[in-house]
């Protein structure tokens, strides 16, 4: 078995990984889109988005549309790199487990 590479603790969490996986496939997404797709509660999602933002993995833009607050999230280059490394690490681990 190949030596196990430590998985990024920021991404190795169900909801944060789901958010990053959604954002990697799109240019930008609103908070409501992420909530709808992940099925998470607004409170929990806010906390996890905050953690991803603090890690520099996503950008969060807050603005208003028709007097309603709007939160838009985008993955950053750092987030994209971390996601690819995470996937690579998992694949390596799975491949070595199968040998």
């Amino acid at each position: 078995m190949l030596p196990f590479k430590d998985l990024d603790p920021i991404l190795h969490s169900q909801l944060r990984l789901a958010v990053i996986s959604l954002l990697i496939s799109v240019r930008e997404a609103e908070f409501t889109f992420l909530k709808e797709k992940t099925g998470a509660t607004a409170g929990n999602l806010s906390v996890q988005i905050g953690k991803l933002k603090d890690a520099g993995y996503i950008d969060v833009e807050k603005k208003f549309r028709d007097n309603y607050p709007l939160t838009i999230c985008r993955i950053t280059p750092k987030g994209t790199k971390a996601f690819h490394e995470y996937v690579k690490a998992i694949q390596q681990y799975i491949n070595s487990s199968n040998k």
Binding site: S13, Q14, L15, R16, L17, A18, T38, A40, N44, Q48
Partner: peptide, 8 residues
Amino acid sequence: MDTDEKPL
């Protein structure tokens, strides 16, 4: 997805 820290 109820919890963020659920082990994966």
